[in-house]
Design a protein around this nucleic acid. Structure first.
Lengths: 243, 243
DNA sequence: TGTTGACACTTGTCTATACAAGAACTATAA
DNA sequence: TTATAGTTCTTGTATAGACAAGTGTCAACA
């Protein structure tokens, strides 16, 4: 095991989860926690910052740290489930069908805007099904520079697991845009759309730990199966000088 | 003026913006910055953490802090503009039409799940137009406990400005869900939907600094005018023990 | 009665110092 | 030539102490 403040954050998160610290309660003060865990106050503060970032607590100057109602974090305000949520429910049957797997270049609009010098990539187009129902069409452009070869077997299972676990690539961040657009005839057929020709398009650009561009993905979701949940703190309490 | 690390972060952000530190470059090392600004290294680190959170730089242990290409942060990967973006372009004509303004109670599904004791609220339904084109139908439930009265004049302009600036309410965070759903006949008429009956629904629960629930909003967007941009760091580098 | 001010408690900022851990370079040895 | 091991950069973690700033309580005062 490793870092103290992460351990403490995990321990506190656990106690919140098991309602040892219930929603609405205040956590012990920072000096108190400092004594409890036998670490400095700064270390406690780092742990609490983690919890605040995860939305588990809210820090209020002059008062303390309040435990936030867990129901708030991802409140199922609509009863439509997302691909991910469906996937996590074990009784569901998830499947992937490879439509295309070839060499290609990253689309020019992307390579131009990011000033890419190397554009050689592997192109994978896949259809995702849940309980034999088509849900998403995924298209991926993965730079050859980092992943020279992708086999049908690898495309069949989780690419992320392959990248991170087997190749040791460290994915750090991504930018995503969500829009709603008319689908092509082939996608309409693949997703078996009947009442509409619209799909939810999620485009994401993925970058590695060393900031290099790595992957461009276009996901086209059946609109009735799409859900996106966001938990956001209000910008910058200090006036948002940044940006 | 106030806090050092915010000032330093703002200064560095400015220099990045004006390409004094260009994309791909490394910032000076933390000890160097510490000397430059004549503050301790911890203060520099807090400033850099702000910049990393805003996506302006990326910290790499053992190497330094790289400036990230600004084009990456909100890359216009689709050419569809959002309400906010349109709004910011000054030549656009933005207008608000009040459809309804009455007293109401927060919907039961919400009040039940959040265990609200006080549910008396003001209900506002508004149509937002850009260049005389209807774009969004907004419905708000605002707790009377915090905002006893809302006049038509206030509903006509920015409610947020009224809440934060005039009433001194401090909004801290919100949870949002984005889905695509069939619209009611009235909304179809109000948004002048022709080719589809689908709208993008953004539901958000807003909370104040003291963690109390404050506002429930349902925004129904015309699908061809909707765009959502997200910039996300990859979960927890420490293994995601939290949650 | 009602307001003010001191006080005690909270979190927020900042400092100075130390050591751990990752990355890159270099000189040395096989 | 190719490894290996050091050295020296970098950022990451942790400490102890100090003072600032927000919040609430309570006693003294007008």
């Amino acid at each position: 095991m490793a870092v103290k403040y992460i351990q403490i954050a995990a321990d506190l998160a656990n106690k919140i989860k098991h309602e040892q610290y219930a929603a609405g309660d205040f956590l012990p003060s920072e000096p108190t926690l400092s004594q409890l865990y036998n670490v400095s106050r700064e270390t406690i503060r780092k742990a609490l910052t983690e919890l605040a970032g995860a939305g588990l607590i809210q820090k209020i100057q002059g008062k303390g740290s309040v435990v936030i109602n867990a129901a708030r974090i991802a409140f199922p305000v609509s009863n439509i489930e997302s691909f991910d949520e469906l996937n996590k429910q074990k009784q569901m049957h998830a499947a992937t069908k490879i439509i295309e797997l070839t060499d290609a270049r990253v689309p020019f609009t992307i390579s131009k805007h990011l000033s890419l010098t190397e554009t050689a990539a592997t192109y994978v187009k896949r259809l995702r099904l849940i309980n034999h129902e088509p849900i998403v069409v995924d298209e991926d452009y993965i730079l050859k520079k980092y992943v020279p070869q992708i086999s049908p077997q690898q495309a069949q299972s989780s690419l992320y697991h392959y990248f991170e676990h087997d190749l040791g690539l460290e994915i750090d961040y991504a930018t995503k845009t969500i829009t709603v657009e008319p689908a092509s005839a082939s996608v309409i057929k693949q997703l078996q759309l009947t009442n509409t020709n619209l799909v939810v398009v999620v485009r994401s650009l993925t970058y590695l730990k060393d900031t290099s561009f790595f992957q461009y993905t276009i996901s086209q979701h059946r609109p009735d199966k799409f859900k996106f949940v966001d938990f956001a703190h209000r910008k910058n309490k200090n006036g948002g000088l940044i940006l």
